[in-house]
């Protein structure tokens, strides 16, 4: 019984505590080749992820570029159709919903992007940009919408008098606030924030991180916070999931993951992340990984990290290590976890 608790039980909770549950989630992209453009393989961007996001928490998703973070975030919101697996939102499997039912569900989940305006019409005024989700879902008359837009601007720390200005008139940090206001328009429960501060300078990043934190308290939001920046992830997250080559390699309470990383990749990642502290930099032991991240088209057999891992043994090249509990509430996918 105890062994079972520690071992095979997926890091799941009942639907009451979890807002979002991913089960066996896979997203593969076809790779085409040759003159005819036939499918010659697939990019295994997300390759079998089980993950829960608890109500009211910030789950930080960290990993290096190309490991599948954005794809996972988009698949959770059904902006990409998963190749396999399920996404439960408040217990309902989104992958099985009719388009109409999915559309109604969308109100509860929003996304914040690195550059909120890359996908928007630059000719729209600020007011129109923030109001658009309300229009799409037919919410309120114009007077109510105007009021809501002004309220949202205030909430994110922008002047309500700016409704008639255009996005290009704003700085990066202000644009990110506009993106946040837009995401809040429909009163969502869940927000996927994909590298929301990665394009910002640290002084502005701090403003946006503080804002996200404040809004979470004020509106009871649940965040999936995606970033490659370990400092930002640690600062905002209650729990952290580390991703490598389409898999979750480690998952646990933020402080425990930072203090007692279990997976060699997490250990290397933390040791490689520079800190603004010369004494620490001088004395800390840095693990320098060899080589690059392998291609997700031909991932290594066994543990995806094995070609770069200093602990790897024969079993690591043959058997995929399941995500198992190694410390209370702290899971790792490694045959030889710990320091």
């Amino acid at each position: 019984m105890a062994a079972e608790m520690m071992g095979t039980v997926p890091p799941g909770l009942d639907a009451g505590e979890s807002l979002v549950q991913l089960r066996g989630l896979k997203v593969y992209f076809p790779v085409r080749g040759g003159l005819l453009g036939t499918v010659v393989g697939s990019v295994k961007a997300v390759d079998g992820v089980d993950l829960d996001v608890r109500r009211g928490e910030t789950l930080g998703l960290v990993g290096e570029s190309g490991c599948g973070k954005s794809t996972l975030g988009r698949a959770v919101l059904q902006l990409i159709k998963p190749t396999a697996g399920s996404v439960f939102f408040e217990g309902a499997d989104l992958t099985k919903l009719s388009p109409g039912a999915m559309r109604r569900r969308r109100v509860d989940m929003q996304m914040i992007f690195q550059d909120p305006f890359s996908s928007l019409d630059q000719r729209f005024t600020l007011g129109r940009v923030i109001q658009e989700p309300l229009d799409n879902f037919g919410r309120g008359n114009q007077k109510e919408k105007d009021e809501r837009v002004r309220y949202l601007l205030q909430v994110v720390g922008l002047s309500p008098n700016w409704v008639n200005r255009y996005p290009h008139e704003f700085s990066g940090g202000q644009r990110q606030r506009i993106g946040v206001a837009r995401a809040l328009a429909l009163n969502p429960k869940f927000i996927v924030a994909d590298e929301p501060t990665s394009a910002l300078d640290v002084s502005i990043q701090a403003q946006v991180l503080n804002l996200l934190k404040d809004l979470q308290g004020e509106f009871g939001l649940t965040y999936l916070f995606i970033s490659h920046n370990l400092g930002a992830i640690r600062h905002l997250s209650d729990r952290i999931a580390v991703m490598y080559l389409g898999h979750i390699s480690e998952l646990g309470d933020a402080d425990d993951v930072y203090a007692h990383p279990q997976h060699p990749y997490t250990i290397a990642l933390l040791s490689a992340s520079p800190e603004p502290d010369p004494e620490l930099e001088r004395t800390r032991k840095r693990i320098i990984l060899t080589g690059d991240v392998p291609s997700p088209v031909n991932p290594p057999s066994g543990c995806p990290f094995n070609p770069r891992c200093w602990k790897a043994q024969a079993i690591c090249r043959e058997v995929y290590p399941p995500l198992e509990q190694k410390r209370p509430g702290h899971y790792a996918s490694c045959h030889f976890p710990g320091p």
Binding site: S203, I204, Q205, A206, N210, K213, G231, P276
Partner: peptide, 20 residues
């Protein structure tokens, strides 16, 4: 200000960053 705006491991998680 720049130094206190950087999230770092010696600052307890969840404390407010000093934004400029």
């Amino acid at each position: 200000a720049l130094l206190s705006a950087v999230p770092r491991s010696s600052v307890p998680r969840g404390t407010r960053l000093t934004a400029i």
